[in-house]
């Protein structure tokens, strides 16, 4: 009943308020992140808005992006956000799922309502989303293994820091890393510690391992958690890293990590295209809606490999907020 009333109201509004000559068609795309306020997602949102502006300027559609998400990284709240978007009848949705299972139903509801849905960064593989746009986590883990093996000349003890046990993307990173190192008979992985995506737990895990294995030569951080802490929080790691006794390869390329790399604490960083999460998602959705383009189930965003050779270029990219230029080789 309320639906019909709303519909009638809407008709009245449209009838009265429609411009005399609607020159251009409007396309409304929703870009949904895991949570609001995370600096990395803010970056993706800026990318989404930038591509929308470019597409609108090029025509023929006026592309409007609704960048939204739940306040915290909560699966239930995210379901509500998705249902609201379905009710608003947006033209397409790009979502990064807080939980692959909880995300599946609302995605299928949207598809049933005729709204194409894609996922980015965090997938819901069982759902009817038309594609998943992300870094290839397994390949990135392999690259990390290669970079670390080269940095320690193919021999010595190394350790792995990961996040929440069971997180799919992190497991793929660690698996890629382990598979690569399996080819180096003189390298042994002596510890794998979990941080629970928590800064203090990550710091404690790193220091515990540094203490237990005084002859450690290398680290792979599958996420940046302990690096959030300032200097002085990890005295053992910091000392070993500064003197070059321990080499560290970490995921992500946030400004404070680039600083640590420049200061000699880190050997290499593997970056995801945060900007592209928004920029490329909007382009993909646009092509799907406007041209009915068919995409493969996985779109590889590629990765940034940052070492001392190209760290300045990455720092400049953050300063100017322009990530379109390709990085110099690592």
């Amino acid at each position: 009943m309320r639906g019909i009333t709303l519909l009638l109201l809407l008709l009245v509004v449209v009838a009265c308020g429609a411009p005399a000559a609607p020159l251009r068609q409007r396309m409304t795309l929703a870009w949904v992140s895991k949570s609001l306020g995370n600096p990395v997602f803010d970056h993706g949102r800026n990318g989404a808005l930038a591509r929308a502006r470019e597409l609108s300027a090029a025509g023929p559609y006026t592309v409007e992006v609704i960048a939204t998400g739940s306040a915290s990284a909560d699966a239930v709240e995210q379901t509500r956000v998705l249902d609201d978007l379905i009710a608003r009848r947006v033209d397409g949705i790009a979502v990064s799922c807080n939980d692959p299972i909880a995300c599946t139903e609302p995605i299928n509801r949207a598809v049933a309502a005729g709204i194409p849905v894609m996922t980015w960064d965090s997938d819901a593989p069982e759902s009817q989303r038309f594609t998943f746009l992300s870094i290839d986590n397994y390949a990135a883990g392999r690259v990390a293994g290669e970079l670390l093996a080269r940095a320690i000349d193919g021999s010595g003890k190394v350790a792995v820091l990961t996040g929440v046990p069971g997180a799919l993307n992190l497991e793929q990173r660690v698996r890629g890393f382990r598979d690569t190192l399996a080819a180096y008979p003189d390298i042994t992985i002596v510890a794998e510690v979990t941080s629970n995506e928590d800064i203090s737990r990550g710091v404690q895990g790193v220091e515990d391992v540094m203490q237990a294995h005084r002859d450690l030569r290398g680290w792979f951080f599958a996420g940046m958690w302990p690096l959030f802490a300032d200097r002085g929080a990890m005295p053992l790691w910091e000392q070993a890293a500064r003197t070059g006794r321990v080499k560290t390869v970490s995921f992500d390329t946030l400004p404070f990590q680039l600083e640590l790399l420049r200061d000699g604490y880190l050997t290499a960083l593997i970056g995801q295209h945060y900007w592209g999460w928004g920029y490329d998602s909007v382009q993909t959705l646009y092509d799907r809606v406007a041209h009915r383009t068919v995409f493969p189930p996985f779109i590889d965003t590629g990765m940034d490999i940052v070492t001392i050779n190209n760290v300045e270029a990455m720092i400049r990219a953050w300063e100017t907020n322009d990530f379109t230029a390709p990085l110099p080789p690592p």
Partner: peptide, 16 residues
């Protein structure tokens, strides 16, 4: 004390 030790105050700190 935890913040002073880590040198960072995260809104998600101490979750759980």
């Amino acid at each position: 004390l935890m913040t002073a030790w880590l040198g960072v105050a995260a809104p998600t700190a101490a979750e759980g």
